[in-house]
Simulated scan of single mutants.
Amino acid sequence: MKGKLLIYLLLIVASGAYAQNSKFSFIDGKLLLNNKKSYESGKPEAKNRVGELLKLADKLLDAKPQSVMDKNFTPPSGSKHDYMSMGPYWWPDTSKADGLPYIRKDGLRNPEIRKISDREFLGGMEGKCKALSLAYHFTGNEVYAEKATQLLRVWFLNPETKMNPNLDFAQAIPGINDGRGIGIIESRFLADLTDWVTILRASKSFTKADFDGLQSWYKDYLSWMLNSKNGKDEHKAKNNHGTFYDYQVSAFALFTNQDALSKSILEETKKRILVQIETDGKQPLELARTNAYSYSTMNLEGWFKIALLAEKLNLDFWNYNIDGRSLKAALDYLIPYALGKEKFVYEQIGSYNRKDMEFLMLVASDKFHNQAYISEYRKVEGHSLELFNALLCSRL
């Protein structure tokens, strides 16, 4: 009996190893461990949700690892190891024989962007690692951690396939440039990825050499973001690009044990609230877009992740208020439109996905101590929470 108890205690310690060894960027480690206990104790909701997760993760076990080397184009540097993409809202100028230079049509995505696979494959790699790392967390089954580790090695570590730590050629505009700072928003997946890596640190499959190599890659990429022309340009962006730039660099600094740098970045981030959010909660820079409500929601998601990260460094963004300008004000303004209670008064040329509000409403219910947020959302949606929001943001 004592032997079984000791083994059980060792398993608990191992499952929580990531919580002691490093900080998450935006997820709640205590909540994640609580939901694992709910699953292990057989609570129906937890069993059902983890069952969904395992079905998804099992399908990924045979997935072929993808890398920047898989694209059919070579960046101007001459190396496929460099990430490459094209600006999504730029189209050929039909008045020109060669279509150059391309012209901007905000909100209208040019299908040409799909010809360059780096952006899609980067997002896909992050999504697969999320499912696999969480499957490992809930079950302790090394097969999931081993697969996630394989994907990470191919993208970041293997000499023949690894991505160089820069986005020099992201969101290029044909006839105008080979890449620009705006493209850095495409690497926001890498900030979330630090959390899935943190979970994997408890695994035997993900070795110290893997972590050290990945951490070194992130240090190099962070240095590029802070010192390159593209990085400096994106830092100056006043809208959602500036928000997600700050989320990335603060997350990367935290992940690479540069807490003081992360904290100093976040202190500067607070000043963006004065520029981005009005006293009535409007986000004017996002409302000026042709998909005003989609961009307002996206930007607020960036802010919420920043606020969650800031908590790890004992900074409070939830109650930060400049003359009525606050994250809560921005959310309260958006809710009636996003949930269909009031008609859109700003331009929204594309469809608006109300599921994008789910993460915000779940987090707001907790951080603003008001369950009305999520209860109102559930009334409008009328169906269960998205899988990862249920596992990461709600108590099972």
Rank of each mutant, 00 (worst) to 15 (best):
I7E: 13
Y18W: 12
Y18D: 00
A19T: 15
S25L: 10
K30W: 04
N34A: 10
S38N: 07
Y39W: 09
K43F: 03
E45K: 13
A46T: 03
K47E: 10
D58Q: 06
L61C: 11
D62N: 10
Q66D: 00
G87A: 15
S95D: 12
K105R: 13
R109Y: 03
R109A: 11
I116L: 14
I116F: 05
D118N: 14
G124Y: 01
G127E: 14
K128L: 00
T139Q: 08
V143R: 15
F156M: 08
E160N: 11
K162E: 07
L167S: 06
D168I: 00
G183P: 02
E186I: 03
F189Q: 11
F189D: 14
V197A: 06
K208Y: 01
D210Y: 11
G213Y: 08
W217H: 06
Y221N: 09
S228V: 06
K229V: 13
D233N: 14
E234R: 05
N240L: 06
F244G: 02
Y247D: 01
Q248D: 03
S250L: 06
D259P: 00
A260S: 13
A260N: 11
L261I: 13
L266C: 01
E268N: 14
K271Q: 10
L274S: 12
G281P: 08
K282Q: 12
M298W: 10
N299E: 15
E301N: 12
L309R: 02
F317N: 05
N321S: 00
I322N: 09
L331F: 13
I335C: 03
A338I: 11
E342T: 08
F344I: 07
Y346P: 01
R354P: 08
F359L: 14
A364I: 03
S365F: 04
E381G: 00
A390W: 05
L396Q: 03
